[in-house]
Amino acid sequence: MSKIIAFTNQKGGVGKTTSTANIGAGLARAGYKVLLVDLDPQINLTSGLGLTEAEFNVYGALLQEYKVKAYPIQDNLALIAGSPALSSFEKVKGDELDREFLLKDLLEPLLERCDYVLLDCPPALGLITLNAYACANALYIPLEAQLYATDGLEKVLEMVTRVQRRLNPTLVVGGIFFTRFDPRKVLRRETAEVVRDKYPDLVLTSTIRETIALGEAPHLGQDIFTYAPTSAGAMDYGHLVQEILTR
């Protein structure tokens, strides 16, 4: 049975999609069968992995317009494409019975074929994110070490507590990790220390440095290991993958 991991933060622009793509690619390179699911209406995960014309997407599958389709990206790595129409999911399905478990039901038949399912959540704590939390085994929270960074973190942790109580008692927070990290900047270091002091059991050792290659790779539809295998970004995500595997 596969493990479902959601990458989430209420704040946008923290490297959530970049992390989903590169951690997924890192796990696939380590020999695990990985399925990525793009739940963000911006569909940056889908386009950033080079899937530009997907006839079938997660939104249509959730609406039962067709069966769910996973597109192969590389060896051991497949993707369920996202759709801009996901922004209307709450309006369309908000009154439906068991609406929080629609994603869980959709993914259930696929789990026996995967080792890991990685969910790229939207930067909002709406019904799509609630569906992700309801079916996930663990959440990982990418965080930028800057002013107000912890605001989104607090809201995510509050929602996790509610989900654990009402929908998914086995859900755990796997960890928090820093992205776009520059240890030379005093504010980044100080903010990171504040978060580490407040959540000593949650903050991971691995950090993702800010590098040009991480921004360039999606424009070519590639993960960092394919685009720049010797870069700092590839090294950092490699370490992060190993740390996730040991938790």
Rank of each mutant, 00 (worst) to 15 (best):
G50P: 02
G50N: 04
G50T: 05
L51I: 13
L51H: 12
L51C: 14
L51W: 11
L51D: 09
T52L: 12
T52F: 14
T52P: 08
T52N: 14
T52Q: 13
E53L: 06
E53H: 06
E53V: 05
E53W: 06
A54H: 10
A54L: 07
A54P: 07
A54F: 08
E55G: 13
E55I: 12
E55Y: 14
E55N: 12
E55C: 11
E55D: 13
F56H: 15
F56E: 12
F56Q: 14
N57T: 08
N57Y: 06
N57E: 06
N57C: 08
V58P: 00
V58I: 04
V58S: 00
V58Q: 00
V58M: 01
Y59W: 09
Y59H: 08
Y59C: 04
Y59E: 03
G60K: 02
G60D: 05
G60C: 06
G60Q: 03
G60W: 01
A61I: 05
A61G: 04
A61C: 08
A61R: 01
L62A: 03
L63T: 10
L63V: 10
L63E: 10
L63I: 09
Q64E: 13
Q64V: 14
Q64T: 13
Q64N: 11
Q64F: 11
E65Y: 10
Y66Q: 14
Y66H: 13
Y66M: 12
Y66W: 14
Y66S: 14
Y66N: 14
K67Y: 09
K67R: 10
V68L: 08
V68Q: 06
K69E: 12
K69Q: 13
K69G: 12
K69Y: 13
K69L: 15
K69D: 13
A70W: 07
A70M: 09
A70F: 08
A70V: 09
A70Q: 06
A70I: 09
A70E: 07
Y71Q: 04
Y71C: 05
Y71S: 04
P72C: 10
I73Y: 03
I73K: 03
I73L: 08
I73T: 06
I73D: 02
Q74W: 13
Q74I: 12
Q74C: 15
Q74T: 15
Q74V: 14
D75T: 15
D75H: 15
N76I: 04
N76P: 04
N76Q: 07
N76D: 07
N76R: 02
N76G: 07
N76M: 07
L77F: 04
L77K: 01
L77W: 00
A78E: 08
A78H: 08
A78Q: 09
A78S: 12
L79E: 02
L79W: 02
L79C: 05
L79T: 01
L79Q: 01
I80K: 00
I80N: 00
I80V: 02
I80Y: 00
A81F: 05
A81T: 05
A81C: 09
G82K: 01
G82F: 01
G82H: 02
S83E: 03
S83A: 07
